[in-house]
Design a protein around this nucleic acid. Structure first.
Length: 311
DNA sequence: CGGCAGGCGGTTA
DNA sequence: TAACCGCCTGCC
């Protein structure tokens, strides 16, 4: 049996101690925030037990208490939308899902998955805001992680709605200092409406390269036709091919059968399942047949494993 | 200097 | 529809 952790929520604004309390399965902050699914969380210590991040208009600090086996979420920023924070974080961290059961299923009769899961058994797949996921993964293409992170912060700082920090003036100053220290903007990612109104030259300071055009085109499409709902919708967006569409489907639409294949997944599939590295179609078919509805979880365990090994 | 990084769009056969 | 190619940028 996996260990039980608990989550508590606290808001600076009200100085309320705890207003939510929910049992969750295995969770490891480092594995969750550094398995490639998100770009706006930063470690505050070497142990990886404390992170600060921005998501869906919320800025928060999350601490893992080893002794109490709690994850404590401290909201730093009042959300711009009237979202219930307990609900928001529960959905974002996928707390209602039984990861122990998923890991058992994937491990059954599969030594490769057993090995991969052992490396990242505290991964949770974040349910992220759809538009933010689209923007993030368009930026991610043919790019490296430090630069992706930099682009996202610059973009947010320039054109994103400011997040109103919570609490007393002293609280706000402390919160801002923490965000500054780790290089996070206290802004949400820009909306599709804002991005659709920009010219490519407006985005020059963000250093997106040729992705600037993709973002603006996609923002215009979303403004005109609404947000995508299916894999086919996603694939029609400018700058969204099969890999990016699978990432958006998995992290933004909750399509847990998605199996994004990037260079790392190709690498791990060739090493561990003996595929030819160029055989993307074969890998996709294999994942569909073998992992089915759990493809996204399998992909994250495999990705994290190979990154730990060779990244 | 060329190679490369969590691919994609466009062109060609 | 599959195979190629060029691509912004920053870092090695």
């Amino acid at each position: 049996m996996s260990k039980e952790y608990f989550i508590t929520y606290k808001r600076n604004a009200a100085h309320a101690p705890v207003y939510g309390y929910a049992p969750v399965g295995d969770i490891d902050l480092r594995e969750t925030f550094e398995c490639g699914q998100c770009f706006r969380w930063r470690a505050l210590n070497d142990e990886g037990t404390s992170y600060v991040g921005v998501a869906g208009g919320h800025a928060a600090r999350i601490d893992y208490d080893k002794k109490e086996k709690h994850i404590r979420i401290t909201e730093m920023g009042a959300h711009t939308k009237p979202t219930d924070s307990t609900e928001f974080w529960t959905e974002y961290l996928d707390l209602d899902r039984d990861y122990a059961a998923i890991k058992r299923k994937l491990s059954r009769g599969d030594d490769v998955m057993k090995t991969a899961i052992a490396a990242g058994k505290g991964i949770r797949i974040l349910k992220q805001d759809l538009w933010e996921t689209i923007v993030s993964f368009i930026i991610s293409q043919n790019n490296n992680i430090p630069r992706i992170k930099g682009c996202i912060e610059k973009l947010s700082a320039l054109y994103g709605e400011p997040i109103e920090l919570a609490g007393t003036e002293k609280n706000k100053a402390e919160e801002k200092a923490i965000l500054d220290e780790v290089g996070l903007a206290s802004n949400a990612l820009p909306t599709s409406k804002v991005l659709a109104s920009l010219k490519e030259s407006d985005l020059a300071p963000v250093r997106l390269g040729y992705r600037a055009r993709y973002l603006i085109e996609t923002a215009k499409a979303v403004e005109g036709e609404g947000l995508p709902e299916t894999f086919d919708d996603l694939n029609k967006l400018c700058g969204v091919g099969p890999k990016v569409a699978n990432c958006i489907g998995l992290f933004g639409l909750g399509k847990m059968d998605s199996f994004p294949i990037d260079v790392w997944v190709r690498r791990v599939m060739s090493r561990m399942y003996d595929f030819d590295e160029g055989d993307i179609k074969g890998m996709q078919a294999f994942a569909e047949a073998k992992f089915g509805d759990l493809g996204g979880f399998a992909q994250q365990y495999l990705f994290y494993y190979i990154r730990e090994l060779e990244g």
